[in-house]
Amino acid sequence: MNNEKLTLEQVLSMDLPNIILYAAPVMIILVALEWIISFYKKKDYYDGKDTFAATTIGIVNVAISASIKLITFGIILFFYNLVPWRIPDTWWSFILCLVWIDFWRYWAHRIAHENRFWWATHVTHHSSEKYNWSVSFRLGWTQHIKIVFFIPVALSGFHPVVFFICHQIEVLYQFWIHTEYIRKLPKPIEYIFTTPSHHRVHHARNDKYLDKNYGSTFIIWDRIFGTFQPEEEQADYGITRPVKSYNPVYLCFHEWMDIIKDIRNSKSLKEVYAMTFVRPSRLEEKRKSFRDK
């Protein structure tokens, strides 16, 4: 098997397809159609300011992705070149890579809900109290540091081109599951794949729905690791500490600002650590415990 090392120039010269960029016009058209249908049916699924904020966040995210392309490629390529083995570039390597990426996306997503530092990169996506296709655009501008969770994929020997194509497919998959209009699908699909029904649960702040259904493309990881919750009652969307703002910058950085504020008010290194890495759902409890000491 060819284990020749690749250079960044070689990877970039392969003219990788930007699937997300090609899909963007279709997604925008679908958002507009869903908005029009919601207006016609008098459904309270959209809010103009909320959608504008989500779209702005999404556009800036595309720009950030483009600007750090060399860094992202360089990280994956560095770890790919560290190992002596290679997975052949065949049709099945794409399927295998997709599943492997999805496994790590599950854990990256779960950690982003269970650790405040990583929650700060993800909270933007959950702060909307609406649930529609435009919400899929709301991805925090600091989310790109989560590339570290995908180093095991590079170390597995998947060609960087295979990695980036599969990762784009994974990201695109998230679009269609952000809607109220697609209800429960046939059981075999609901059992294996993440569906709108599963993801509505994930975006809800109902007590029984909190920190459930982290699956990206496949819901099987939640079933295996005990975080699965079927959709039962109507979801109440948003976060437990609502953010009353439509400012894209504030929506992307408010949690980081709160972390810095808590660090400044901390009276020990132990408190600094706790305020930075506490589980978000236990933040108030932790704050109280340090105040009472």
Rank of each mutant, 00 (worst) to 15 (best):
K5H: 14
P25Q: 04
A204G: 15
Y273K: 11
I165M: 06
H122P: 06
F158Y: 12
F163W: 07
R205V: 09
E190C: 07
I29K: 09
E232M: 11
H178C: 07
L77C: 07
F52A: 13
N247R: 09
H126T: 02
L269H: 08
R241V: 09
F228N: 04
I76P: 11
S268L: 02
H202E: 02
R264F: 10
T195L: 09
D211I: 00
S216F: 02
Q229A: 10
R264K: 15
D89E: 12
I192V: 15
V201Y: 11
H167L: 14
P186G: 07
I260F: 13
F39N: 12
I68D: 02
Y237A: 11
S38I: 05
V161N: 10
I220F: 13
D262H: 02
H126G: 02
I151G: 09
W133R: 14
V153Y: 09
K288D: 11
D222K: 07
S128C: 04
T240R: 12
W118L: 13
S289M: 11
E233H: 07
L283A: 08
I151F: 06
P25H: 09
F39D: 08
E9T: 15
I64Y: 01
W141Y: 06
N132Q: 09
F164H: 13
R205T: 10
H144R: 12
Q174I: 10
I20T: 14
T72Q: 13
V62C: 00
L251T: 01
N247E: 02
S281I: 08
D222W: 04
H203V: 05
S67Q: 02
H126K: 01
I263C: 01
F103R: 07
I182S: 03
V11G: 10
F277T: 00
R86D: 09
M257Q: 09
N132K: 08
I182D: 01
S216H: 13
R183G: 08
G48R: 09
A32P: 00
A154V: 01
I169Q: 03
H113G: 00
H254E: 07
C97I: 01
I28T: 10
L82A: 12
Y46F: 15
G157Y: 10
H126S: 02
L98W: 07
Y209D: 14
M257N: 08
R138D: 01
N3T: 15
L12V: 15
Q229S: 13
L21W: 09
L77M: 07
F158H: 05
I68R: 05
L77W: 05
K288E: 15
T51P: 01
I71Y: 13
W176T: 08
Y106G: 05
S281M: 11
R200Y: 10
S65Y: 04
P248Y: 05
R279S: 00
I71N: 03
I95W: 03
